[in-house]
Amino acid sequence: MLARLSDTDRRAFREGARAYAPTLMAIFSWGLVTGIAMSKSVLTLPQALTMSLLCYAGSSQLAVLPLLAAKLPVWTVLLTAAMVNTRFVIFSVGLAPHFSYLPMWRRIVLGYFNGDVIYLLFVKKNFPTGYVPGKEAYFWGMAVASWLSWQVSSIVGILLASLIPDNWGLALAGTLALLPIMVSAVATRSTLAAVSVAAVVALLALDLPYRLALPFAVIAAIVAGSAADLMIERADLRRIRGVNDRAGDSR
């Protein structure tokens, strides 16, 4: 595949894979946990393998397993999965200016392979919007590394669930491994406000059904971040006006 790419795209693809490499162990542990959970649920082996390959969304996969076990209506399962994945709407909005020039089918494929960490690392790269040589290849370098790591670990968890003790604490290990990446993303005051408010809302709404705490936290983060951006922008404008006024008085 790389041989068909230009030199720029090959370099960008490898750079994206290298940028994603530090997160592979965390993703692998999450995939392992998800695979084990699916294998030990009501799903058959073919159903678990199909869910891993088609859904590719660990949080929603884990969220719907208890609902499937309780034999709740399908609409309940779909609603819960949609609520958990609400954040991907935000990710799509963020990626849209970068890939709007692509055909719809390619944007849909990009959406399938997108993920939390992929989006975070892509945004940190600060690419200009629109077409940029190597930008899509950089995304694919991260996406391929993530997808392969997830599928391998998830399938290993599905096939070897009976051999992996429940007390290994893999879910906690994956969470702790991802924390430094998430913390490093808090680079501005508006981001800090969004993260802080989202954390509080998520804790307060933790006991709500259908994992509603997650979409509520996402919405609260958007509102808090937007409000912080607006306040910072207004403060900067007042400061600029103050400097201009003082400069005018000095003349």
Score class of each variant (00 low, 15 high):
F88T: 05
N244S: 15
R4W: 08
A171L: 12
N244V: 14
A193Y: 12
R189E: 14
V109L: 15
P215Q: 08
W75V: 14
S41M: 00
A57E: 05
N244Y: 13
S6P: 08
T86Y: 12
V74H: 06
F28A: 15
S92I: 07
M104A: 14
I164Y: 02
G130V: 06
A205C: 09
P215A: 14
S100Y: 08
L102Q: 11
A213N: 15
Y20D: 00
P215H: 13
T191F: 15
G174T: 01
I108T: 09
K125Y: 07
S146P: 00
L237F: 11
S29P: 03
Y131I: 07
G35S: 03
A143P: 03
S149Y: 02
L95Y: 10
V186A: 12
A185E: 11
V186H: 06
T191Q: 14
A3W: 10
A221S: 12
D9S: 01
T175V: 08
P215D: 11
G242H: 10
M51G: 04
L54H: 02
S41A: 10
G16N: 05
L148G: 10
P22T: 13
G115E: 07
K125M: 08
L214M: 12
Y20Q: 02
F91C: 06
K125Q: 10
L49I: 01
A171K: 00
L120C: 09
A199L: 13
A221G: 15
A202T: 07
G31I: 03
A69I: 10
L148R: 07
Q47K: 02
R18V: 13
V156I: 15
A21C: 01
D116A: 09
D166L: 07
F139T: 06
L214G: 01
R246K: 15
I155M: 08
A137R: 04
I155V: 15
S226N: 14
F113N: 01
A70I: 08
N114E: 14
L159W: 01
L148I: 13
R239H: 10
R239N: 12
L121S: 05
V93S: 13
L79P: 08
N167H: 14
F99L: 06
V156A: 00
G141H: 02
L65K: 00
Y101W: 13
T34I: 07
E15P: 01
V218N: 11
L170S: 06
D9F: 00
I155Y: 02
L62S: 03
V77S: 04
Y119L: 05
A199P: 12
S100Q: 10
S149D: 01
G16E: 01
L204Q: 10
A145Q: 05
P46E: 04
A194D: 01
L170Y: 06
I232C: 13
R10Y: 01
I90L: 14
S41N: 03
G242M: 01
V195K: 06
S39M: 08
R234V: 02
A173V: 08
E136S: 13
F88V: 02
G111Q: 03
V42A: 14
P22K: 01
S59R: 00
Q151S: 05
A57W: 05
L204E: 12
F113S: 04
F99M: 07
A171N: 10
D207M: 07
F139A: 10
T76R: 04
K125N: 06
L45T: 03
D245H: 14
S39D: 11
L204W: 15
T188F: 03
W75P: 09
S184D: 02
